[in-house]
Design a protein around this nucleic acid. Structure first.
Lengths: 198, 198
DNA sequence: ACCTGAACACCGTTCAAGT
DNA sequence: ACCTGAACACCGTTCAAGT
């Protein structure tokens, strides 16, 4: 019955959403919970944000501000991105589903392309290298997230019981590789060297 | 009021879910719609499947049966996977969120590791190479999916209006690279060669 | 312009009941 | 064992109304 100014604006909403995503996962993010955390009706959010999907875009873009500025070495940036996505899995899943075309993301891409050109790449090579490194980082983060909590056996009907020892070995081997940050760094190096300024 | 056998079983349910996922996307997959497609109550599904998340795991695993058997060249397999994920984006998003430990996925991993060992890799090198190639394929597919429908400008509040030409250029460059299958193949080659059997 | 309250059309899942 | 019907505790979003 009040309807008085609640100091609501886009940044406040995005910050609240980010906290909820970190605490309760991607499925825990609902307009109603965000509004409750701000002491406001769910409908109040719609005056500042276009809807849940747009809110998620803003959350993803905002989360990128936690990463270090790109200077010359792209490796540092992607290692930091990888660490962040592993630590905040909901963000990785959100990035997998959303376009990633916010202002922060675009600015980072511009800086990355400029850095690559400075080191001798032409426009195409720079774009290819950046896209490859980003794709690999996202995929490696998602794969690692899904492998980290090694699941109980027998959850999947249809796996022959007598094959499970072998299945277990395969899973353990792959999980070990997925959590190996040395491997991650080596692949980044490989991708950086893969498109040489011939 | 009937409650008569409806020929329902797990495979029928998974197939129906797969059709819905392809037609309506990941968000379009609901227990109620799957059940409606089968002419059955939503609750009937729960006698054959543990819940929506488990159903999604089964859908993801089942979708992998459409891929070619892994013989010796892993490239063919990952190129086929990439094509499938781009053509069926909901599956890519589901793979990004689910563990990928079904029987079909595990069998494919076993065959891939065996093929790598035959070509001279030891266990660790084989696992690293497989994980890298899979991670990259998943990430590249997701990135490409999100870049393909080039969005309208001005959707993101906070992008300075006078920067939009530059922003546009960056986006176009990256979109072009993302849809370049030649680049995708070259990176796969690089990853295959990156962990040489020294 | 900013916010509320009620309502609509959905969700996943539980539970008692039927055959 | 297999299925139904009603119900519970949620969703996102629209819309008329209030200040």
């Amino acid at each position: 019955v009040v309807a008085r100014a609640a100091g609501l604006d886009m940044d406040v909403i995005v910050s609240a959403a980010l906290r909820i995503v970190d605490a309760d996962g991607l499925d825990g993010l609902t307009m109603r919970r965000v509004s409750a955390a701000l002491g406001v009706t769910a409908m109040a959010l719609y005056h500042h944000v276009d809807g849940k999907e747009r809110l998620l875009d803003l959350v993803v873009d905002q989360s990128l501000t936690a990463l270090p500025m790109i200077e010359d070495d792209l490796r540092d940036f992607f290692i930091a991105l990888h660490r962040m996505l592993v630590a905040r899995p909901a963000l990785a899943q959100a990035m997998a589903a959303r376009p990633l075309e916010g202002p922060v993301a675009t600015a980072a891409a511009e800086r990355a392309l400029a850095a690559l050109r400075r080191s001798g790449f032409n426009d195409d090579q720079a774009a290819n290298t950046f896209v490859s490194m980003f794709s690999y980082t996202l995929g490696a983060s998602l794969y690692r997230i899904s492998r980290t909590p090694l699941r109980a056996t027998g959850e999947f009907p249809g796996v022959d019981a007598d094959r499970t020892p072998a299945v277990h070995r395969v899973r353990r081997t792959l999980a070990a590789s997925a959590t190996d940050e040395q491997r991650f760094r080596r692949v980044l190096d490989t991708l950086l060297a893969g498109e040489p300024p011939h």
